[in-house]
Design a protein around this nucleic acid. Structure first.
Length: 280
DNA sequence: CGGGACGCCTGTGAGC
DNA sequence: TGCTCACAGGCGTCCC
């Protein structure tokens, strides 16, 4: 589910509720992608700091517990996987079959709902401690990082021979665009998803970076995409899905040229595109 | 190292 | 109605 816009929507909708709250209990459901990495009781008595997003991860810093001197500060690294969402509850309903982690605080409770369980909540002593450090070290630059210039973006593309679509998905060159937004950005940039990255001109690379940014920014402004069940922490749906030009529109008219939108498979993922508007 | 396939899970919708 | 199959927003791991 969640690509960068959905994760950022989640971060923002959770932040105001939890920052400054103190953890009173934590409860685990079925196993997630990785184990929590600590005893849930170790989380008690810690105060939640400012939430930070990196790629599709959310880092929740936690103070050292006031009542346990030996325990140092740390934090929880959250990932929503393919089907995860976070919900904030003033009063927590009984857990359903897909609720796998509850964080009770002095102000209310944060619950991870994740039917497919590709998501995770992992303890780390800091962003520079394992396992957070390794997980985050693999990530490419943030899309809105000012140091990600068109030149730097193009130079990264020039070193890779893969098709541009799966390369965008990999997050090696820029993080944040998953299957929906990679398809959308390539459509808006007029680039064939099969075009090898090292064959993209400097001018087209600049256009692509601009469209990745514009696509992610637009989705963020619309609250993300709700395909099946994504909601923000207060249960609000996103609205971008109704704006998609190609994603999920196989057989329907291209909004630009009216020819049918096509679907193909690249790296075991669906790619939606317009054969006329997107060129090699 | 780069590139590609696989697997982790559960649910849903289409087709028979 | 009930079965089977394809497919779904991600990403770490393994193999060549």
């Amino acid at each position: 589910m969640p690509e960068l816009p959905e994760v950022e929507v989640t971060r923002r909708s959770v932040a105001a509720a939890v920052e400054g709250a103190c953890i009173t209990a934590a409860a685990l459901g079925k196993p997630l992608r990785w184990p929590l990495g600590c005893d849930p009781d170790e989380l008690m008595g810690r105060t939640i700091g400012a939430l930070v997003r990196r790629g599709k991860y959310i880092w929740m810093p936690l103070s050292a517990p006031a009542d346990r001197a030996p325990a140092g500060p740390g934090g929880l690294l959250w990932h929503l996987g393919m089907s995860g969402s976070l919900g904030w509850h003033a009063r927590l309903p009984e857990a359903g079959p897909h609720d796998h982690f509850d964080l009770h605080t002095t102000r209310g409770a944060l619950r991870l709902h994740d039917p497919r369980r590709f998501g995770a909540v992992v303890w780390a002593a800091g962003l520079d401690h394992e396992p957070a450090a390794t997980l985050l070290s693999r990530l490419g630059p943030e899309p809105f990082d000012a140091t990600l210039t068109p030149e730097r973006f193009w130079q990264s593309l020039r070193r890779r021979r893969v098709a541009i679509k799966p390369l965008l998905l990999s997050g090696d060159i820029v993080v944040g665009a998953g299957n929906i937004y990679a398809c959308e950005a390539l459509f808006h940039a007029g680039i064939d998803p099969r075009l090898r990255a090292d064959r993209i001109s400097r001018a087209r690379a600049e256009r692509l970076l601009a469209e990745v940014r514009a696509t992610l920014a637009r989705a963020l402004a619309l609250g993300g995409s709700t395909l099946r069940d994504f909601k923000d922490a207060h249960g609000m749906d996103g609205a971008y899905q109704g704006q998609a030009a190609v994603y999920g529109r196989e057989g329907q008219e291209c909004l630009r040229c009216a020819r049918p939108v096509r679907r193909m498979v690249q790296g075991q993922r669906s790619t939606f595109y317009c054969a006329a508007c997107q060129r090699r």
